[in-house]
Design a protein around this nucleic acid. Sequence first.
RNA 1: CGGGGUGUAGCGUAGCCCGGUUAUCGCGCCACGUUUGGGACGUGGAGGCCGCAGGUUCGAAUCCUGCCACCCCGACCA
Length: 492
Amino acid sequence: MAKGFTKRKENYSEWYNEIVNRADLAEHSSVRGCMVIKPYGFAIWEKMQSILDKMFKKTGHTNAYFPLFVPKSLFEAEEKNAEGFAKECAVVTHYRLMNDPEKKGKLMVDPKAKLEEELVVRPTSEAVIWNTYKNWIQSYRDLPILVNQWANVVRWEMRTRLFLRTAEFLWQEGHTAHETKEEALEETKTILDLYAEFAEKFMAMPVIKGVKTESERFAGAEDTLCIESLMQDGKALQAGTSHFLGQNFSKAFEVKYANREGKQEYPWASSWGVSTRLMGALIMTHSDDNGLVLPPELAPFQVVLVPIYKGEEQREIVVNKLKNIKNALENEGISVKLDDRDTHKPGWKFAEYEFKGVPVRLAMGMRDVENESIEIVRRDTLEKKSYDMHDLAGKVKNLLKNIQENLYQKAIDFREEKTHFVDSYEEFKSILDNEGGFIYAHWDGTSETEDAIKKETKATIRCIPIDEDTKEGECIYSGKHSARRVIFARAY
RNA sequence: CGGGGUGUAGCGUAGCCCGGUUAUCGCGCCACGUUUGGGACGUGGAGGCCGCAGGUUCGAAUCCUGCCACCCCGACCA
């Protein structure tokens, strides 16, 4: 049991904050709204990055890098996009500091160093990128362009929470240009599927693929697709988005290409991204009242080895044994940390790695040395067993696979339990207040109704799910005709 | 940005109303010794511009003003 650790039921957001802090994932920096991602937390992000990066490459994408600053004139070119982000932009107005003549040792902004044109710190990169694509695209032969960048962006949020919403965050943003509308749409869907696969296979987090309503759509997009996941407190979290941008940006930046008949046309675009917010999603999907729980596919190390001994002589015997085991496991592709520090007792280490969510712990003492055995504990169930040493690596490998599957299944079961089909507004409100979760309900398709429901209940339409129930019905709010059920929830 | 709250050692805190010795306690940290199968114990030690800047006063963690940061509730949001 983790000492002095808030339980989920007592105070969910406190529980979340404590996990982030105590598991060494991240901390608040001295910069307003910005976080420091600590090595253990960053290691998880790096794993996400490396897996996603491989997936992008495999689907034909390449990486590039575009500038952090966007001249205001470029930023405002696509009107809707600019409007949508205007309220949360950091802006650079000067390029030099000087010594403050009134206060010794202090600096001030040099009033003579005012920029002729302000620079917007990118909240997203469509503007710079499409301004660049203008030079890259002349002919259909230059298409498609399938580029991704790993970058930081800044959105000046009023209220921030580590990983879930920070003023600066890390993400990847893909920006593609295509000859036809169909190709761009296809790309948008390909990436959505890729994100869903990543979430389910690697994060062990089930997601629902859907389309955003007009009011939830990305500023400047024709259509926004998303993957939505459900957190343990019954709130929804958008885990990734993929936008079909139509010709909005190519027109705004006057990007044209000669088609196969030699006629000038505007290319079709998509953009898509996932961010360090996935870290928050990962935490809130699996972790429990004993701390962080990590799926083996994303754990910085999958197995921790803890020696138990009395005296230097025993220590040497046990640690040597564990070093051999470490090699054997690593040869099977398992990532292992051997904690042979003499400065902490085994019990302390058990508690520590449990809190940090390490999937499997192996502990060995003299008793095990004599019996040719080893103690094994899995983090997801905290089940403790003794293994004999025969084919240990094979057993651990199976166990890791089993943990990964178990976490996914548990998350699916939870989501199913928290998914409701509702036909009256009264029931809708009562479920929101008492249970939370995804609510499938009929909606008349108007923004007015959507807004009214949001105002009254704080619930939003998370998405219009793809490939699901498309039976008609009556809107729970207005009673008007509804083409199909959509998913409502309170959200992060 | 509006309403409410909080800033004291790395973390959690006492003291603040009612100004006055060397700023309290726990965890953590350092040294030594005993320990080591679920967060060890003893002894000794280090660590503070009491959020920042002004002001009142013989004297400020304490009173006043301004600013900053963080937390909760709204508006906004990946």
